[in-house]
Simulated assay, not measured.
Amino acid sequence: MKKIFIGFFAFSLLFFSPEVFGQESFQEVKQKSVTITVDNEGNVKVVHELRNSEDASQLTFVDGTVSNVKFMKFGIEESVPEAEGKESIVLLPNQGNLFVTYDLKDVLFEKNGVWTWDFFYPESTAFIFPEEVDLLFANERPIFLDDKKGIACHGCQMLLEYSINESRIYQNVKWEEKEFTVEVRNQNGVDKFVFDQPSKSITFDTIGENRFVTTIIPLELLWEPYTVFLNDEEIPSRQHINNGTHVWLIINPDTSGQVNIFGTTVVPEFSMMIPLIIGFFVILTLPFMKKFNLR
C-alpha cells in the first residue's frame, strides 16, 4: 500500500514522495477528538484533533471516499491533495497538535426519507446533526436530542438512522375540561385520527411502507405500556422515550393501514388513581414514621 509521509514545519507542509513500504506498519496516532458534522443534504465533514507523537505514526481515516483533505495548525490551513482517496496517511514525528479535516462521501444513504449510515470507527466520535433532527436511532434504539446538537459514540459501531423534514400532525384531544395534544410524525403524514376513551386507544391511518411513525403521547391521557396493531395484527414498537410527561412511541410499518395504540390507563382513570397512589405510599411509610417518633 502506498503511504504518504507528511510533515508540518513552520508555516508550510512538506510532502515526501509516495513510496511503497511493503509490510512496514506504523503505530496509530493518538487522537484528542473526532467530530463528524452532517448537513441536511447528507454531506459529511470529519475533523480529527491529533496529539503530538515523538515517532512516525499513522492516521486512519473514517471509512468512505475521502476528499478535500486539509491540515490545520497555528490557525493556518493547507490542502493535502496527495491524501485524497487514501485510507490513511503517515505523519512524521514531532508535529505538535494538529487538526486534520476532510469531506467524506459514499457513507450516508437516503431511502424513503430515512438517512442511514452503517458506521464503524475505533475512536470515540462526536456526531453533530442538522437542527431539523431531534430524534434518531442508533442500533434501532431511539435517541431524543431535545436541545442538544448531537451525540457521542465511544468506540463506535452503530447503524445510524434519522429523518429530516418529517410531517408533524398535532391532534388536540378534549376530555371534560382538559385538553391534550398528541403529535404524530411520519414522512407522508397520517389520516383519520381518533382517540377512544372507553377502549383506551389511539387510532389513525398511516401512508407508505417501511417508514418511521413516531407518536408522542401525553402520559396523563394514555398511560404505558402500549400494545400496537397494524390492520388488526400486533406489531413491535421501538423502545420508547419517557421524559416524565410524554412518551415517544416509534413503529416502522411494512405497509400502509390502520394503526391502533392501546394503553393501560386512560383519562380520567389516571387522575382518579393519583389519590390511591398517594394513599398507598402513606400506608407504607406510616410504620417508619411511628418508629421514628418512638425514638
Rank of each mutant, 00 (worst) to 15 (best):
I169W: 04
I169T: 14
I169C: 05
Y170L: 09
Q171M: 11
N172Q: 15
V173P: 07
K178Q: 13
K178V: 02
V184E: 04
R185Y: 08
N186W: 00
Q187V: 15
N188H: 12
G189I: 02
V190L: 09
D191Q: 14
D191W: 09
F193L: 04
V194E: 14
F195L: 03
D196T: 01
S199M: 04
S201C: 10
I202N: 10
F204P: 07
F204H: 08
F204A: 07
D205E: 13
D205W: 07
I207P: 09
I207M: 14
I207R: 12
G208Q: 02
G208R: 02
G208P: 03
E209P: 03
E209K: 06
R211N: 05
F212Y: 08
V213Q: 00
T214E: 01
T214Q: 02
I216D: 01
I217Y: 01
P218I: 01
E220G: 12
L221P: 00
L221S: 00
L222H: 08
L222V: 07
W223I: 06
E224V: 03
P225V: 00
P225G: 03
P225D: 04
Y226A: 00
V228Q: 00
V228C: 01
D232N: 12
D232L: 09
E233T: 13
E233L: 09
E234T: 14
I235A: 05
I235D: 07
I235T: 10
P236N: 07
H240D: 08
H240T: 05
I241K: 04
N243A: 00
N243K: 00
G244Q: 03
T245D: 13
T245H: 08
H246R: 03
H246F: 03
V247H: 01
W248R: 03
I251T: 05
N252Q: 12
P253M: 08
P253C: 08
D254V: 11
D254N: 15
D254C: 08
T255L: 13
S256L: 05
S256C: 09
S256T: 09
Q258N: 15
Q258P: 11
V259S: 02
V259K: 02
V259C: 00
N260W: 07
N260E: 12
F262Q: 04
F262G: 04
G263E: 13
T264E: 14
T264S: 15
V266T: 14
V266M: 10
P268C: 11
E269S: 14
E269G: 15
F270W: 14
S271Y: 14
S271W: 11
